[in-house]
Design a protein around this nucleic acid. Structure first.
Lengths: 207, 207, 207, 207
DNA sequence: CAATAATCGAGACGGTACGTCTTGTCTTCAC
DNA sequence: GTGAAGACAAGACGTACCGTCTCGATTATTG
């Protein structure tokens, strides 16, 4: 378990104590600017200096709360999004999964996909950053998927002995693959083909 | 179609004409150094200055033939590797595919996977670089896969109407997913699970 | 009137306000190194990189306070020298001038002449630099000369209607001429000949 | 005596022998381009690369015939100008000198003065270049001046024992002083004041 | 008339310094 | 103690020229 050094943790750790309290305005301004810049340019091309200037904040204030640009981007991203692709109750568990994957694919086609792509790239330079991205973003979503998959298994809908983790990789891997390599669109034809192949003949059992 | 600006093309373009011919020794030295450095550190942490110095070459010579660090890394990588995961004739077409995927997964677990990971990350900052990586690396391998898949279809072994491109994404996507996110190992249990799931019941027909 | 962009002015302008104060140690170190290097090599052969390295200072620190190498050299030179050829009270005003010119010629024969020569050469590439050299070095010295000349005129010692400025050019021009062209030594025979010619018959009146 | 390394000498030295003869077209083109560039920018800002390109000539061709940029500029300048300020016979020897100084001052106010200024500056970096400038430009003109001055002495017109060399410095020094420092114009008021002061009462004797 | 030899253009080369940019730290004063 | 301001050391960036070199092609003289 990697100890997260992100600002959320720092806030908790430092929250008690003397002195001038942390400026909430500065924090919000920084995160807002990062997100806005991420809409215009590659994370690589965004500089801490630029963020500080745009946010009307001292560079030291940024460095005080975030160790790396990747962590800053992760915070900005998570601070902004609500869960846009949740697992919702459907007529069947499999349909619930299919529905979630469709939502996620739609989300990844847009701005959010772009940002995630940039963050993953940025995190390749540091195992710690990559670990943080997984823990703060990926594991939550994978946990929800696993729970749903297990419900499907309990209902006898999943007639395969493929491990849960691997099944998740099988479903979401192709989407991340296209996200990172950009060799083809993440359109609905693609998503439906994947889903049909993975869940072929499974919905029958739910009836 | 992106016009590749990599050195290989430049060499062809400039091969006819006057002037001092390009130094093959410098070229080889640069590519060798890049590869050697890629074994020791992240591509992000490799500097052109460092490459030039280690290669005993002027910085301008590097910039003359490669536009970006990503292109340099791609060339160094491709210059080095032979196709380590080819499609070889097996007792069945499906087995031929399974065998290739096993080889590729094994390759991606090691140094080559590490390098590919770095290159993909580096290419995210520039669509041109990413396009070059696809064209010089990905398309060749995907073309071979497609050809094999079509042979399987012709033999009636593939009983699914999933498009070829999507099938490739389904098989290789999970591997790239684990390569980039590093949430789990690309071990043989993982690979076999994927292969079993994708080709379940298909080998029967080949008998 | 050219607005000087040299460090002295910048210092005054920026002196009030927040932020880390300018490092006096760095400033002194840079100027010291420049002067030391000027004693060993041509100003053309001195590089900013070299100055920074020798001074144990970042290159940016040099560029932050000085726009051009010429300005740097002027500051280093002025920072070092006291007025080595002042106008001192003598038995007559003319003798006071003669004495000053002798001192100046002696000064220009040595290291200072060499440095001034380099600075003047360096300043030819930019009207701004040349203007700064005049304003920070030349005008002060010419003003002192003019004041002394006018005292001489008031005493009726100067029986010529030559303009003050031109008289100064007449006396000092030949010295600068030899300094820049190096066709002959600036020795005392030369200086005395010039002085005798310019002030011939004038000292009589002072008796 | 410095051995001139300029192209004129090289031409003579190399003139006999086998091989392809020197291209007169290239030589003329180079000198023409240098002169044209000198009209537009500082000699410091002119690069050999630029000269070669503009002249449609290989860089090696420039380097083969001229060792330094200063020598190139000197050649270009001398190749262009005829003697624009000669000593011509006048009603008196002194008037002949005065006339020559007026012409020279007029010349130095314009483009030629600008070029000379640049060349002198450029030559400060190398004693050899400065020596060449003196030998190929200055000595010829000073020799003519000395000859005229001696004629004046023989006619008893010059009633001063100032050495010839120093007298020349006294007359021309102020002009070069203003040329290099640019603190005032080299206008006729200035020239006449200098001449009147130097030759005051001398013309009487010529009558 | 072939051999020789110096020239030419083109342009790659190793090298150096440029002036800028970004990083992450530090120092001051204000709150 | 935090924050804004901004100087600082460090070092890579990508560019511009330097002066040299290696080519193939050309153009004269010499044998």
């Amino acid at each position: 378990m990697v100890v997260p050094k992100d600002e959320t943790v720092k806030r908790l750790v430092r929250s008690r104590g003397q002195g001038r309290p942390r400026s909430e305005a500065s924090r919000a301004s920084i995160l807002r600017v990062v997100l806005e810049l991420l809409g215009r340019k590659s994370l690589r091309d965004i500089t801490v200096e630029e963020v500080a200037k745009e946010a009307g904040v001292a560079k030291t204030t940024v460095y005080r709360w975030w160790d790396t640009k990747a962590q800053l981007a992760i915070d900005a991203f998570l601070n902004d999004i609500s869960i846009k692709a949740p697992f919702v109750e459907k007529e069947s568990v499999v349909e619930s999964i299919r529905s979630q994957v469709r939502s996620l694919a739609f989300q990844y086609k847009g701005r959010d996909g772009e940002i995630i792509r940039q963050i993953i790239a940025e995190c390749q330079g540091s195992p710690e950053d990559l670990a943080m991205f997984r823990e703060r973003f990926l594991v939550l979503r994978r946990a929800a998927a696993i729970e749903t998959i297990q419900r499907a298994r309990n209902e006898g809908v999943l007639n395969s002995d493929i491990p849960d983790e691997t099944l998740i990789d099988l479903i979401y891997g192709p989407i991340y693959y296209r996200l990172m390599l950009q060799h083809s669109e993440i359109d609905s034809a693609f998503v439906e083909s994947i889903l049909d192949f993975v869940f072929k003949g499974m919905e029958v059992k739910t009836s």
